[in-house]
Design a protein around this nucleic acid. Structure first.
Lengths: 364, 364
DNA sequence: TTGAAAGCGGTACCAG
DNA sequence: CTGGTACCGCTTTCAA
């Protein structure tokens, strides 16, 4: 309530107009063009000029506006599209990107799908913002659309094994990762290993590769693949999810897992398509009173909570931070014009053993 | 590099220049001003005009650029400052905000501190972006700075119990919430209840209120408050955290909890300042082989993982989504000019019982 | 109701 | 190396 004091100087600081580049130029006694060069560290300014301009900038507390810069030059903004924020794997990627960006004049806009916004809408919005480059997860956007985006703005895709020419990709080796999981479970003595995942949608998506590798690896081992698909949740159904509780099992995941558990003979191990699915799977198995020896559970991603002693989930570490750092490194190469041919990098997956996977009990 | 395929029509769609408002005007045979009015749903356009313009917009696939709009009018962008993304409570808030925003032409920019960027830097950056309004957590920014920001742009603060006139606040009733925790533990028979939290910094921050309430409530119950403070991590030390693993106990939290456990007599219960601290606390107690009956643990926030059967953390549900939804509602009131006096809303906290809090074993 | 024209605050080009 | 200046695409008076 500083309002009771009629003229409070501490709040009075509301200049009629923000200080502009022209103001700086006037104060420093130079041209606007010169100031522009200084703030961009552009070529062709004498040390004396730079100094005087910098002094004026400091004196006036000048800060360039992104909007004005974006009109002519670059927006100094990187857009990061991702499906949601409640999945820790995605926020690990954000961390990796942000750390690299910290030493640059570029800023990061985190643009989650947030349930109601599709990845395509998010990409459009980033383009409307004239970002200088985009990093995207975009696991469900058609390739043609991505290629098109890639011709408009430098683009890096994560989790899509596309041999695109217009954009780069960064992926974990999902085939190798899946084999790590299966060999681990097979090594423990499991034979009835089920897989719970989203219904394959894009053939090149990480999820799909894990699924396909699971199937072929099982068959090669002479075992029967058992997949339970989580029903795709329509966007319309998701509206309002934000105000609901985050809690409880996603109904569809719950059903998918319950369906697996009801099979006879029951699977002794469940390989979940990613860690959030694995956590939900554990909700169901624990609710059913089934421990690691009855049903082993393995995830994929390496979310932070996975190695909490109370959870201790066996999973594949995808090195989210490294993926993010790699992505922004590749993106900056393109933005700075250092490279214009597509590259496709992979980071190695690593098995992280936890208590949720154990040998099956010897019944049968 | 569409270069390999000489003339690929699917990728060829790279118009030399994006379609502008002027193009739409030309196509529709009207003035740019008219188009501007139509896309803003502004007053003073005849139905016929609107229809023709809309047709041209659809035909050309016109999309207004945020930068240009921000130059003169509003940016149709809301900025959300928050300390980090790896804390699920914060992303719950984001969800609440996003859901309400879904029905408006406004877009959300999520701007996390990301370790290296301080809240103040993030706020500055949002202002440079000319966002139309800001929602901030900003738990460590001095009040004067916030008041100043509040005079520049509509501002809503979360987790700060300030009676400001220049900005609104949305808070959980931290006093009531803390009492719920303590009464629960006292009811279970605990007397040696410790508190682990960040060292109080801002007197009006939620964390501080919980701390202060803990102290007074304990004293009023005739018990001795025992607080262990987590050392503040300097920003400089945090750089690079993004590429490190998210895993393991924050060294400082670990030390703070270990210090508590080494006291004699040992506390039988630990009230953590928020859920992420509680999870780290559980890491330490479990590593020390101490179960709920040796050391009860209670958190605060209601993160999603708290109610996982493997964790089952007793905590206070702060209704993050509701807080976010409330915040954006208040912000839109200010942006649309419906209100110019500050309001300060509170949402009620609720105790959520879990397995991590149990009566103390009868030793003494 | 409609449109002409003057910017918003930077950048880029080009002449000095 | 420096500075004048024409823009970028949209919004906003203000006349017609």
């Amino acid at each position: 309530m500083t309002g009771s004091t009629p003229a409070d100087p501490s709040v009075a600081r509301t200049p009629g107009r923000k200080v502009s580049l022209r103001d700086v130029a006037a104060t420093a006694g130079v041209s606007p063009a010169a100031v522009s060069k200084v703030i961009r560290n552009a070529y062709g300014v004498s040390p004396g000029m730079r100094e005087r301009v910098q002094a004026a900038i400091d004196e006036l507390g000048y800060r360039p506006r992104f909007a004005a810069r974006a009109m002519r030059g670059s927006s100094f903004t990187i857009g990061l599209e991702l499906p949601e924020l409640s999945n820790d794997f995605f926020t690990q990627i954000v961390g990796g990107v942000a750390t690299v960006l910290a030493d640059t004049p570029y800023h990061l806009i985190v643009a989650p799908g947030l349930g109601y916004l599709s990845a395509e809408a998010v990409l459009d919005s980033l383009i409307d913002r004239q970002v200088d480059g985009i990093i995207a997860l975009a696991s469900k956007v058609p390739l043609e659309r991505l290629e098109q985006v890639g011709t408009q703005v430098p683009l890096i895709l994560l989790g899509r094994h596309e041999a695109s020419v217009s954009f780069d990709t960064v992926n974990s080796d999902d085939v190798a990762g899946t084999r790590l999981v299966l060999d681990h479970l097979l090594g423990l003595g499991h034979t009835r290993i089920a897989h719970v995942t989203l219904r394959p949608w894009i053939a090149t998506a990480s999820q799909t590769l894990r699924h396909d590798t699971y199937v072929t690896h099982m068959e090669r081992a002479g075992l029967e693949p058992q997949v339970s698909y989580v029903r795709l949740v329509e966007d319309s159904e998701r509206v309002g999810a934000g105000t609901d509780s985050h809690r409880g099992v996603d109904r569809d995941v719950g059903e998918a897992v319950a369906e697996l558990l009801s099979r006879s003979p029951r699977p002794t191990a469940i390989f979940a398509g990613h860690d959030m699915l694995a956590l939900d799977t554990l909700r169901v198995t624990r609710a059913a009173g089934l421990g690691p020896h009855e049903v082993a559970v393995v995830g994929y991603d390496g979310v932070a909570i996975a190695d909490h002693p109370l959870v201790d989930l066996t999973t594949i570490d995808q090195s989210g931070p490294t993926m993010g750092a790699t992505a922004i490194r590749l993106l900056m190469e393109r933005i700075l014009g250092d490279r214009s041919t597509a590259v496709h990098e992979e980071v190695g997956p690593a098995l992280r053993l936890g208590r949720t996977s154990a040998p099956p009990v010897a019944t049968s």
